[in-house]
Design a protein around this nucleic acid. Structure first.
Lengths: 338, 338
DNA sequence: CTGAAAGCGCTAACAA
DNA sequence: TTGTTAGCGCTTTCAG
């Protein structure tokens, strides 16, 4: 492994002090002669010198690193969000750390502490809410933003989508099409804000129309819990058109083949809809009614807020919630005629 | 923003020197008394002290950061790979940087140089091959691994899949089913190793069976180039069963709705297959024949190789290629009977 | 216009 | 068993 070029080397080759080189690096060109500037420039190019970000960070107390902590980076929400976040941060010279928690509070805590040790400049988390004490403390040291899931923590800003309203609108849409009942499929709430909100939206829509709610909770790790749904649909759709609405795209992905297998006609006997907008929603026939989350906007907004706060480090944010509306996509899978 | 706790603070509160605290941090417990150890432990816990990774890195010349540079992190290949990579690196205390190049050589160069300045401990790249000079230089300073795309650069290891063989096998499979011709849809080669290899596999399979190759090149940024494919299929499938085989999953995703729209029966009049295994391949009817890339294995292998090399920094690797076999999935979309 | 020197938080000889 | 000291590569007063 080669030795790396340092500011010392540059200074020596250019015949100046390291101070002057440092000035050059920080673009204080007016406090040096043309000749000096040119010489340093040339030496840096020749030597392929790049200032050591560690040393700069240690001195300046910043790293130009922003950390994103998500449950699972393969979830479409996370991928899209991180991309968009990265695209707004990257031009400003920030690097993106990505870590996964798998929804495990202990892992989350360990990850966060490790990021703290790395002296990241800011954190963005899709948290489970079990480490809010720790995160509140961290929020006094750097900008912290929660995305997707909302928790009231002092100093932490939330960037979320209108889960409840969108869910209510989607449910309302389905019912207005004439489906007699809507089966809502969700996962154990477990303190996850989105699950609660989406369920409540569904319940509210049912309530307003005096429709009896019908909810089944599944566990993605237990295949047989999905069978319960399939059996329920098989019975329920016999006598009248019903619809199945899943609380997230992964559930629909798991459920879809089995539901289609039942042989009911979609959308005339069986309506289908899901929260999230899976990339395949337009590929199946008929296309799937769904709720597209504004991940790009959320990522961009998060990035912009961070850049702003990183620009003026001494501003404290007490508590703020940014809600961005989801986008309902009415596909053929809920187009009931008759 | 609060002041952060330093090793100084811990030393003062514990009534010892910072050296002793440092020893504690590095688990050299045998060179201190039980009492001291206990006291330091308590102080660290009380103060919520975490050692500054920047300072440690500056001293030790390592950052515990591995950088992944990909074309687009939303590509299924990248997501899966990065997850798997992260899962093997994370337990060893490594953090993952993620950057995108959008396939732009200049951006790639800028990103790589910036990562170099950040003093990452290793780089994993899905490169376009235009910065191999720079990367060769970097490979003398740290482990560098190319994934997905192969380039011969001294000191750089390649982790790839058997694109050519898999492509040939897939094409052979389709032809053996009895489709008279296979239309191969690809993108401009542009020096991208995978595109070349997959095409060659296709050509070879055709050649062996004396079938005239039929290739159309599309551009994902130009919608009308896809129309060319659709028109060709419309004509071609009139008289005899043909198949369409796309060089990657994104192409099939774009093409699929339009092809289905044509009204030909899949698989009897029109066969469909793609490289990559899109998450929706099992959701459409009939299920899509495809080539699953071993992204998990590739990520894990890459991570393990890195950990090994990071463990013993002075070993030089001349040039190595690890090829991992893809997994062919024969779905209903190419099941031609008759 | 330029440089010397202190120090960011930590590690590792070298002493005691 | 513990402490003193010299840096790692950089930025920033403060003095010329």
């Amino acid at each position: 492994m080669d030795k790396r070029v340092t500011i010392q080397d540059v200074a020596r080759h250019a015949g100046v002090s390291i101070t002057t080189v440092s000035r050059f690096l920080n673009e204080r060109y007016d406090s040096m002669s043309e000749a000096t500037r040119g010489r340093i420039e040339a030496v840096i190019r020749d030597l392929g010198y790049r200032p050591n970000a560690l040393a700069q960070g240690l001195k300046g107390n910043r790293t130009k690193i922003v950390a994103a902590v998500v449950v699972n980076m393969s979830y479409p929400f996370c991928v899209g969000f991180m991309r968009s976040l990265n695209q707004t941060l990257s031009p400003a010279g920030y690097h993106l750390f990505v870590s996964e928690t798998a929804g495990n509070p202990d892992r989350e805590r360990a990850v966060v502490q490790s990021l703290q040790a790395q002296r990241v400049d800011a954190m963005v988390l899709q948290t489970g809410g079990q480490n809010n004490d720790l995160l509140a403390a961290i929020a006094t040291q750097m900008p912290v933003i929660f995305v997707d899931r909302k928790y009231s923590v002092p100093g932490v800003t939330n960037v979320i989508t209108n889960n409840r309203e969108a869910s209510e609108q989607l449910t309302a849409h389905i019912l207005e099409q004439g489906y007699r009942r809507v089966l809502y499929v969700t996962e154990e709430e477990d303190g996850v804000h989105t699950r609660k909100e989406r369920l409540q939206g569904y319940l509210q829509a049912c309530h307003k129309r005096s429709i009896k709610p019908w909810v089944i909770t599944v566990d993605r790790d237990q295949k047989d819990t999905f069978d319960v749904v399939v059996n329920a649909v098989e019975d329920g759709a016999k006598k009248e058109p019903i619809a199945v609405y899943t609380g997230n795209g992964l559930l629909m992905m798991r459920l879809y083949p089995a539901l289609v297998q039942l042989g009911y006609q979609v959308p005339n006997q069986l309506g289908l809809a899901t929260f999230d907008q899976p990339d395949w929603s337009g590929l199946v026939q008929p296309s799937l009614t769904c709720v597209g989350q504004p991940v790009d906007t959320m990522g961009a907004l998060t990035g912009e807020m961070l850049l702003q706060r990183l620009g003026k480090p001494d501003e404290t944010v007490s508590f703020e919630v940014k809600t961005i509306a989801s986008n309902l996509v009415f596909g053929g899978s809920t187009r009931l005629h008759g």
